[in-house]
Write a protein that binds this DNA or RNA. Structure first.
Lengths: 232, 232
DNA sequence: TGTACATCAGTGAACGCGCGTTCACTGATGTAC
DNA sequence: TGTACATCAGTGAACGCGCGTTCACTGATGTAC
């Protein structure tokens, strides 16, 4: 059948000869968006500036993304996909031991955030994304699922009770998310000289933090004050 | 000496008779700002809208805050002050035991965020605040100091080594900050139905999370693999 | 107690700007025959 | 291989809007004498 899986001469497209048709405008716009987000934050993003940086008239993006919200939503969804990929690959590469896997996933979460702060911040931004967008939701859920699965394995291996799994999940997620957020926002150095310096320093700091956290995630719940109250 | 500590007839001011002079415009603008931040997020804040809600011409705020950045910075600084107050009072009210105090401080951090999401989000926003502002910096540092002190007491009581205190601090701070951020942003319910429902539910969930976290913060470091490498 | 004056706090008109959106258009590309 | 045609992708001018800032002004308040 003609037309099926026909290669679209990707090299030509990448070369992006400066003709009337850009050839790779979609990607160029996403790159421009990342640039702007890094430089100015979400606040500073405008569709016109984005088009300007991609070297195209300001009406052009509409053909690919509809409007600004559409472009940012697409960008955020890509971020979730990549984050999930990194988390999965780090998990696969880790020692075949549940807690090591969980730590690897957490570290991947942080490393993605430090390596792609524009993506990370946008992914968790309200108000400029289309939260109803199907691919955004799906990518976000997939990301969370990887963390959840890793924790589930730890729980199984340590015979942890099911009832406090959600709390453990929240703790794990809060810790990596909070760490990434604080470092990216520069709060650590600002508030009182916790030096998380460059991304490398910060990544190493995250490893320390995760090493402290991991035991708590794998630990059986504190024994209830054995007297009184029958178990239900 | 006349003019010293003269009361400025606070009641009259609060009453804010609708004359030419507003009488309590500063407060009215800050209240309006909070309203806007809650409804629209930082994105949606404009000085003109703020003046509008305060019932005043759009040039009026300049007399009190200079410009939009000044107003938001003042609002954020107030947030840090109030957060610090809450953390301190909860710490004072807690059982006289270092770990209980630390947990109380962490819970206060989360509760403030849940109770004043507009403040919380703005306090950690980049780009629209004057990060160099002295009172903003001071209030932020004071807040962090309370958490740091509480952790310090735990470390002393448990004879924890000094070298990993920064990592413990980061873990504690990351966890409460991440938790608050995720809940406020609505990620918890969105990503996979961790139900943190209303603020009360969320506060209770935070208590569970802190109960899991606390032991890790007070636990002595994992014994190093005793063989090899002399201690330095 | 009264008067003059300085300062403070708010007004409202005007400005220039960049934004998002729309629209008729046109060049380029791909497909049918 | 050529031709006609539909569709796609980008242009550029125009629009109306809300924004921040400036400025001359004025009403209200407080102080000196």
């Amino acid at each position: 059948m003609p037309g099926v899986n026909r290669p679209t001469s990707p090299i030509r497209r990448q070369a992006a000869a400066p003709g009337y048709h850009h050839g790779a405008l979609r990607k160029a716009l996403l790159d421009a968006a990342e640039e702007i987000l890094l430089e100015q934050g979400v606040q500073g993003f405008t569709l016109r500036e984005c088009a300007r940086r991609a070297g195209v008239s300001h009406a052009a993006p509409a053909h690919h993304f509809g409007d600004a919200r559409g472009l940012l939503t697409a960008f955020a969804a890509i971020g979730f996909v990549r984050m999930a990929e990194l988390m999965q690959s780090r998990s696969d590469a880790a020692a075949d031991e549940p807690l090591a896997r969980l730590v690897a996933v957490g570290q991947a979460y942080v490393d993605f955030a430090l390596g792609h702060p524009a993506h990370f911040q946008l992914m968790f931004t309200q108000g400029r994304l289309d939260a109803e967008d199907a691919s955004l939701q799906e990518a976000g859920q997939r990301t969370a699922q990887i963390l959840s699965d890793a924790l589930g394995e730890v729980a199984r291996a340590n015979e942890l009770p099911v009832h406090d799994l959600p709390a453990r999940m929240l703790l794990a997620w809060s810790a990596v998310h909070g760490f990434a957020t604080l470092v990216i926002e520069g709060q650590c150095s600002q508030a009182f000289g916790l030096d998380t310096g460059g991304p490398d320093n910060a990544s190493a700091a995250a490893a320390q933090v995760l090493a402290l956290l991991a035991p708590a995630l794998a630990m059986p719940p504190a024994q209830p004050p054995a007297r009184g109250r029958a178990p239900r």
